[in-house]
Computed example of a mutant assay.
Amino acid sequence: MSQSPYDLPPLTALASFEAAARHESFKAAAQELNVTPAAISHQVKALEAELRQVLFRRHHRGVSLTETGAYLLVALQRGFEEMAGAVDQLRSRATRPAVTIRATTAVSALWLTPRLGAFWRAHGHITVAQNVSDLDSGGEDSDLAIHYGDMARDSGDCRLLIHDCIKPLASPRFAARHAVRRVADFERLPLVHVDRAETGWTSWRDWCRALGHEGPVGGGLRVNNYVIGLQAAEDDMGAVLGWEGLTAGLERAGRLVPLLDVSVPSPLDFYIKVSPHASHQAHLLCDWLVGAGAAP
């Protein structure tokens, strides 16, 4: 018969002693462990016999720890606390999603969420949670993080999602009222300007300059959230710049239409970064989003 690698007394005896020592009462320990006081006394006596040490002083109205008993109690409590911590971590892991992914509101609403539906249909056993933040930074708290930036300047496991282009969009009603034939026409049109805290977000002035127009651009509404900006454009409040990878669904649905048949390559890319501690399920989702399975 194989021997246990731990030279310990029976765990039942150790648990009985710990409860009795913590309460300084065999009766209270018995109530906690749902046994009889006699059972606690038996386990403690067996432990004392094995250790050849007296652990309790017996009194008419109770018990108190000897110095040896106090030493053993501290050691057992330290061990039980470490075991309890490990068990608590395992329980919390069981209730956490298998994969967490961070994205901005725009990326989540316009690109990621439609693709997660297809992923779940193919991999229903993998739960996914989105951490949505309009600060396109961080991601250390997630298995995967989608960024808009220069992937070459990032470190770690980064993979390209969208090499995008940017074009002017508006609602069909707005487009019918405002004929646009050249870039200079955007000087007179009401525009939706998206002011983002992150660097690299292309403005109307940036877009026009990329096409050789150095003049002014129209005024209009200013927002700090791209989804709100798109909604404003749908509500006929002005033209908006559309990142094709994000707005393709809105165009297919006819909610937004191009105002001019011209586009500018995005100076930055949408890419996904994988945490060094990402699980196999996270890598599977990453491959899905990068590869052919990403089609909505």
Rank of each mutant, 00 (worst) to 15 (best):
I228V: 14
N224D: 14
A122L: 09
T127M: 08
W288M: 07
G245N: 02
V63H: 01
V223C: 13
F119N: 05
A98E: 09
L211P: 09
H123K: 08
A129W: 03
W207R: 12
L268A: 09
Q43H: 15
D141K: 05
G238W: 05
S4C: 07
Q130H: 07
K273N: 04
G139L: 03
P265V: 02
S4G: 06
A86E: 09
I272G: 03
K167I: 06
A84S: 09
V194R: 06
V107Q: 13
T199E: 14
W201V: 15
A197W: 08
L135P: 01
A29M: 00
I162E: 10
T202C: 13
F270A: 09
C208V: 14
S41P: 00
W204V: 06
M237K: 13
W201A: 09
Q77I: 04
P258R: 14
H193D: 02
G85P: 00
V35G: 00
L221Y: 10
V107I: 12
R93E: 09
D287M: 06
R173I: 11
S108D: 11
K167T: 12
D136F: 06
L11G: 01
S275Q: 00
A232E: 06
G69F: 09
A253Q: 13
F56D: 00
M151W: 07
T105E: 10
V99E: 04
Q77K: 11
A13T: 04
R153A: 13
D154W: 14
D206G: 10
G219Q: 08
G149Y: 08
L250R: 15
P296R: 15
H178W: 12
V44Y: 02
I126N: 01
V194P: 07
L72W: 10
F56V: 01
Q130A: 14
L289W: 03
V180G: 08
H59G: 14
F119E: 02
G215L: 13
A118N: 11
V54K: 13
Q89D: 05
Q53F: 05
G218S: 03
E214T: 12
L241H: 04
H123Y: 12
Q130G: 01
D157I: 01
M151N: 01
R181F: 14
V132P: 05
Y226L: 13
